[in-house]
Amino acid sequence: MNSTSIHISSLRHKDVMNEFDNILKKGKYACFPAPDIKHIGKNLYLLGMPFNKKIHWFMAEETTNNGRNATLNIIDKHVIDGNSISKIITLPIMERGILDNTEYSLSNEVDRYNTDMKMIQAIRKNTMGDYDFYYSHENIFKITPRKSHANF
């Protein structure tokens, strides 16, 4: 079993800045629950979105949930560094109460050898419960499979 690093991106990144809302509106995302992290927030999610053949990762903190939609504050690397939240989004709650848009496959948008793509497929297959998630340093987080059959 090996771990995969997730680098939290920036809403100010030139690939992301002008396309974030458009990609979100088209439902092009993967969104998984993540454990609470003391200095970042509670009710956290990992949000992966495709930009220019790569996946950019953000964290999102759920602020409200009415059973049909969840409102989330986007936590990018600038928020982790201490800046205020600059983006609030709403995602529909899918069947089984998840936020992940499992109907969407990132394969057409991302280089097929991308390790982030393999990680998304593995998490969707095995569920997030089979993984440990922890803060590594700066804007980097690690996801490590707990079980031998849950790997990337």
Rank of each mutant, 00 (worst) to 15 (best):
N65R: 04
S3R: 09
N22P: 02
S3E: 12
L99F: 00
I85N: 14
G67Q: 01
A30G: 08
P145Y: 06
W57V: 00
S86P: 07
L11V: 09
S86R: 14
R68T: 13
Y29W: 14
G97D: 08
S5F: 15
H56P: 07
S105A: 15
H39E: 15
N114C: 06
A34T: 15
K28C: 15
E62R: 06
I74T: 03
R146A: 09
P50F: 01
Y104F: 08
L46E: 01
I120N: 06
M119R: 09
M17S: 13
I143R: 10
T64P: 06
K142E: 06
G27S: 00
N52V: 15
K125A: 11
N52F: 15
R12L: 07
E61F: 05
K25V: 03
S86D: 09
L99N: 00
G48V: 02
N52H: 15
F141N: 04
N139Y: 11
R124C: 03
T64K: 13
I93F: 00
S84K: 12
L99T: 00
I55Q: 11
N114S: 09
N52L: 12
E19T: 07
T4L: 13
Y45A: 03
E103S: 07
K25F: 04
T63M: 10
I88E: 12
S105E: 15
F32E: 03
D130T: 11
I74G: 02
K77F: 11
I55E: 11
L72D: 05
S86Y: 07
I23V: 12
M17V: 12
D130L: 07
I140Q: 09
T127P: 08
F141G: 06
I55Y: 08
H13R: 08
R68Y: 14
L24A: 02
I98Q: 01
K147N: 12
E103L: 04
Y135W: 04
L44E: 05
H149Q: 14
T144P: 03
A150D: 11
N52I: 14
N52Y: 15
G48S: 06
Y29S: 01
